[in-house]
Design a protein around this nucleic acid. Structure first.
Length: 431
RNA sequence: GUGGGAUUGGCGUAGCUGGUUAACGCGCCAGUUUGUGGCACUGGAGACCACCGGUUCGAAUCCGGUAUCCCACCCCA
């Protein structure tokens, strides 16, 4: 391969053969968020760098070492979005959507960019479906978005994904808790691994789910966040659980889920699977009551989640879930002669107007080769169009599986009759 | 950023301790006479053996570096 260049590290192409898989999951996500009352928001792929610095958090890994940041010709610093929430929040503020009534419920599909080392389930360009809900502090909203996520996963047919739930409290209870953690782990400074030592300063909650066995042992008796929640946060957390119980959503409380973005408060959750490698979080989210203020707006409690599309697709693969392919050709017209080629165009137009996929030869193959091609693309029916057919104004439509042929008139009733014929055969060819 | 594994036609692979036309399966294209696919048969296209450099009379095969991919850490979707 002497190509002058290849795709950028950590990026992936979705080829024509594969795109139906993406469309399938996206459609379900769209439909599901729609019935919950969310409307799609679309924001630019890049933003002023300070938006992410402030929104996502200066101290986070994402901001400190993973952003694609560059200066424009005009000298401003812009950044390819590393996640979807900051841009959506910015748009909500900029257009003062809070004046149109609360809550604001938005869904999005975005590509995101993080300069990381690629591995299973982690790319430098990846795609997310997400939900945003602004202007509600009610635990009902927390439960609502979790329900959407659950519905999506259910409708996709995924199994073995469990919901882990936690509350990291408001900034006040979290500050107390972080201090308690620092105090506790400081006693064991000599025994902690290097990464944990740095976590002790940066983000003590991360100490809780260190992989090293020794650290795990120490972490076992560490203080629990649930003992540090203020009354409001605790009630909120309990209420969320009650709503989930009522909706029949199963979850496990996991006090070690932290989330790596600064804006989270109170409820945090992850949908996790173990079938796609180490990066098993397929959906993550929670509440971010302080984000809008951080970005210069008024107090507007908010929440949301993001789902990794590549990871969802990986789970579908791992679990052998079949995705219906709607892209198979319904009718292939093989032609002989120039007049037949032209006639084919008029028939094809009729058929396509019925929403059926119809094709003909556009590379100049012989009849036999055209039939081979029809077979190769999995055409359900074929039709040979030559001088005889044109003279008699009728042709035989052949079922490619059974070999059975049905004669149809080549007039303006053709498409209608053909679609009846194809629908009676196989439901896969329904529109 | 730190580790481990990999890199041979479109895809999946063989090529053992260096020796001269780089093999196989699948796929692709064409044909197997008069207007019809799936099978079979015949033929064909397609590889500077990831890249750069080194050792050698000689390297896909050995050594070094780089890149990319895969996997893990960190972190996250």
């Amino acid at each position: 391969m002497a190509l002058i260049t290849k795709k950028i590290k950590g990026t992936e192409d979705v080829l024509p053969k594969q795109s139906y898989r993406w469309q399938f999951i996206e459609n379900i996500m769209r439909e599901e968020s729609r019935v919950y009352g969310f409307k799609e928001i679309r924001t630019p792929v890049f933003e002023h760098t300070e938006l992410f610095a402030r929104g996502v958090g200066q101290t986070t890994d994402v901001v400190q070492k993973e952003m694609y940041t560059f200066d424009t010709k005009g000298g401003e610093s812009v950044t390819l979005r590393p996640e979807g929430t900051a841009g959506a929040a910015r748009a909500v503020l900029e257009h003062a959507l809070e004046n149109e009534g609360l809550p604001i419920k938005a869904s999005y599909f975005v590509s995101c960019y993080r300069y990381e080392k690629p591995q299973a389930g982690r790319l430098r360009e990846f795609h997310q479906f997400g939900l945003e809900e602004y202007g509600t502090q009610s635990p009902a909203a927390d439960a609502e978005i979790i329900c959407v996520a659950q519905s999506v996963l259910d409708r996709l047919g995924l199994t073995g994904i469990h919901l882990e739930l936690n509350s990291i409290g408001c900034p006040e209870c979290r500050a107390k808790y972080n201090q308690a953690l620092r105090d506790y782990f400081s006693q064991y400074k000599e025994q902690l691994c290097d990464t944990c030592l740095s976590r002790l300063e940066k983000n003590p909650m991360r100490l809780l789910d260190c992989k090293s066995p020794e650290d795990k042992l120490i972490a076992k008796d560490a203080p629990k966040i649930t003992d540090f929640l203020c009354e409001e946060c605790e009630t909120h957390f309990k209420e969320v659980q009650k709503y989930l119980d009522s909706a029949g959503v199963k979850y496990v409380i996991n006090p070690t889920i932290v989330r790596g973005l600064d804006y989270y408060t109170k409820t945090v959750f992850e949908f996790v699977t173990d079938c796609i490698g180490a990066q098993g979080t397929v959906c993550g989210g929670g509440r971010y009551d302080g984000l809008i203020e951080e970005l210069g707006g008024k107090h507007l409690p908010s929440l949301g989640f993001a789902m990794g599309l590549e990871r969802i697709l990986m789970v579908m693969d791992a679990q052998g879930i079949e995705i219906p392919n709607p892209d198979r050709c319904a009718l292939y017209i093989a032609t002989m002669g120039d007049e037949a080629k032209r006639k084919a165009f008029s028939l094809l137009r009729q058929v396509r107007e019925c929403g059926l996929i119809a094709e003909t030869d556009v590379v100049g193959r012989g009849l036999r080769a055209q039939m081979k091609y029809a077979d190769k693309i999995g055409a359900k029916y074929s039709l040979v169009l030559g001088d005889n057919e044109i003279a008699e104004n009728k042709a035989k439509v052949k079922n490619m599986e059974s070999g059975e042929q049905t004669e149809l008139a080549l007039d303006d009733t053709f498409a209608e009759k053909f679609s009846v014929l194809s629908l009676t055969g196989d439901e896969a060819f329904q529109i």
